[in-house]
Computed example of a mutant assay.
Amino acid sequence: MSGPLNPGGDAGIIAGSLERPDLFAELYHRYAPDIHRYAARRLGDGAADDITADTFLSAFRTRSRYDLGRENARPWLYGIAANLIGKQRRAEVRALRALARTGNDPVAESWVDRADSRVTAQAAHTSLAGALASLSAGDRHVLLLVAWADLGYQEVADALSIPVGTVRSRLNRARRKVRGALGDLDPTLVHDIVPEAASHG
């Protein structure tokens, strides 16, 4: 640790919650809406409630192992959520493939429409869904943590416990696949869904 903990900071709250568990609720109030929004985009609103609850339950149970040198707990929480979502990978891929095939799926309303309000072409929706479904779980985690959770490369590395170089290579591979699938349908979608390295480098 580089200095005394800020009692109102994330690390300070986690440290304090070891003696006073009720303090941990502050992290829930800070980050639960973001985690829920991210889970809803990945799996739909129905599953998002459970993912959010399980994320914070797991975080609470493992808080004694949190690295207090990391002031911001967001990457840690997104990493837990990504692991939980990964356990439902078959459901996510099935929903994405259904959307790619038919253009209609319950998940579409919770993630595609919110991804970018300017995207209206159904072809772009179905192509994006197909591209996301074709990604490996690891590539999809990296891509969506950058695009939808707005995490930087180091934060994604922290969240997934992988080297920054792996984050970069996975993101580049995922970006190529998404761009290839979308072609020239909607360049703004590629920009908004898959940010350039310059914005997170």
Rank of each mutant, 00 (worst) to 15 (best):
Ala108Asn: 08
Asp113Gly: 04
Leu99Pro: 05
Ser110Glu: 09
Asp45Val: 12
Pro33Trp: 07
Arg173Leu: 12
Ala115Lys: 10
Val167Trp: 02
Leu128Phe: 10
Leu43Trp: 10
Arg114Gln: 08
Leu84Val: 03
Ser117Asn: 13
Arg70Val: 13
Gly103Asn: 11
Ser199Pro: 07
Leu99Met: 13
Gly103Gln: 09
Val142Trp: 04
Thr126Ile: 06
Glu26Tyr: 00
Asp150Glu: 09
Leu144Arg: 15
Glu109Asp: 11
Thr62Asn: 00
Thr166Phe: 01
Asp34Phe: 09
Trp148Pro: 01
Ala40Trp: 06
Leu132His: 07
Ala59Ser: 04
His200Cys: 07
Leu143Trp: 07
Asp67Tyr: 01
Gly12Ser: 06
Gly8Ala: 10
Ala181Tyr: 07
Leu27Met: 06
Asp49Asn: 10
Ala98Pro: 01
Ser127Arg: 14
Asp50Gly: 06
Val142Ala: 03
Val112Gln: 03
Lys87Ser: 03
Leu189Lys: 01
Arg140Trp: 11
Ser127Leu: 08
Arg89Ile: 08
Gly79Glu: 02
Leu18Ser: 10
Ala174Tyr: 13
Pro195Lys: 07
Leu135Asp: 04
Leu132Asp: 05
Arg37Gln: 14
Glu71Met: 05
Asn72Gly: 02
Leu43Cys: 05
Leu43His: 06
Gly8Gln: 13
Trp111Phe: 13
Leu77Lys: 05
Gly165His: 09
Ile85Phe: 01
Ile162His: 03
Asn83Cys: 09
Thr62Met: 00
Val107Asn: 02
Leu43Glu: 12
Ser17Gln: 01
Gly201Pro: 05
Ala25Pro: 00
Gly183Trp: 14
Leu128His: 05
Ala174Gln: 10
Ala159Pro: 01
Glu92Lys: 05
Asp49Trp: 03
Arg89Phe: 03
Leu99Cys: 04
Arg90Ile: 15
Ala95Ile: 14
Leu18Thr: 07
Phe56Gln: 05
Thr188Gln: 05
Gln122His: 07
Ala48Ser: 14
Arg97Gln: 10
Arg114Cys: 08
Leu185Val: 15
Ala149Met: 08
Pro7Thr: 11
Phe24Pro: 08
Leu189Trp: 03
Asp10Val: 11
Asp22Tyr: 02
Ala121Ser: 08
Ala81Pro: 01
Ser161Arg: 14
Glu19Lys: 11
Phe60Asp: 03
Ala115His: 06
Val178Leu: 07
Ala133Leu: 11
Asn72Thr: 13
Asp67His: 05
Ile14Leu: 06
Ser2Trp: 01
Gly201Lys: 10
Thr166Tyr: 00
Asp54Met: 05
Arg90Glu: 13
Asp54Asn: 11
Lys87Pro: 00
Glu155Trp: 00
